[in-house]
């Protein structure tokens, strides 16, 4: 498994987007961004979304380092793009999926696939299945929880008031009451239930990224969140 120290934050000056690790050159990265955009300029949004989906995909396949595998996939696509100039596929996402499957197959064939990287070992202590703070002696789980809550409060203040209200009203209540609340909220905002759930989901993702960044920025806490956070946290 590639150690994280190989990761190089590369600036893509035109988009402001950074790749999590260095492609073999910056032109390849720009080419990849343009190819994923498919003619429109998403300001790197398509790249970030594809990377997020890849990380989730490798996570669902129980891979030890989903971020590394997502980057490996995009790396290969970028390399192919630069070598061939173009890729023949119904959509960029379909091609990325095919490459991801190959990356997964190779990962599963590796005899050392379950070995943890140095960073993983640091973050998980002696029990590979459990994530623990880097300096566990200094931080109790209550403190950790309080920290998370205060990060969330801070992050909630950073979102627009209408989005904050939406999140509160969307998640308040239990079972039937919650369903009723959501129905009323959708009617009030003149949205379909599906559109409401997508909007709530997007706000929640932003909050989650924000909380992960906030937690990792705190001295004395594990870099776990940093390593595993989504692309928007990069």
């Amino acid at each position: 498994m590639r150690p994280l120290s190989c990761a190089v934050m590369t600036d893509a000056s035109t988009t402001g987007i950074q790749s999590k690790r260095g492609f073999f050159n910056e032109t390849a990265f720009h080419k990849l961004l343009a190819w994923l955009d498919g003619g429109e300029d998403s300001q790197g949004g398509k790249y970030l979304e594809m990377r997020r989906r890849l990380v989730s995909y490798f996570q669902r396949k129980s891979c030890q380092s989903p971020d590394d595998l997502a980057d490996e996939t995009l790396d290969r696509v970028a390399r192919r793009l630069q070598e061939e100039g173009a890729i023949d596929s119904p959509t960029p996402a379909h091609y990325v999926y095919i490459v991801a499957r190959f990356v997964l197959l190779e990962y599963r064939r590796k005899p050392d696939r379950d070995l943890l990287s140095f960073e993983d070992l640091l973050n998980r202590g002696h029990n590979p299945g459990v994530a623990v703070p880097l300096r566990q002696d200094d931080v109790t789980s209550d403190e950790w929880e309080e920290k998370r809550l205060s990060c969330l409060e801070h992050c909630l203040q950073s979102v627009a008031p209408e989005n904050r209200d939406l999140i509160f009203n969307y998640y308040v209540g239990e079972r039937r009451a919650k369903i009723e609340n959501r129905r009323a909220l959708a009617a009030r905002l003149r949205l379909t239930p599906n559109a409401l759930s997508i909007r709530a989901c997007r706000i929640r993702s932003k909050l989650e990224d924000c909380v992960n960044q906030c937690m990792s920025a705190t001295k004395g806490f594990s870099e776990f969140s940093f390593i595993n956070r989504g692309p928007s946290g990069s």
């Binding site: 929880e145 998370r148 809550l149 969330l152 409060e153 909630l156 999140i167 998640y171 929640r204 909050l207 989650e208 909380v211 992960n212």
Partner: peptide
């Protein structure tokens, strides 16, 4: 995260 969100 979900626990924290729910508590909040």
């Amino acid at each position: 995260f979900a626990e924290s969100l729910q508590r909040t």
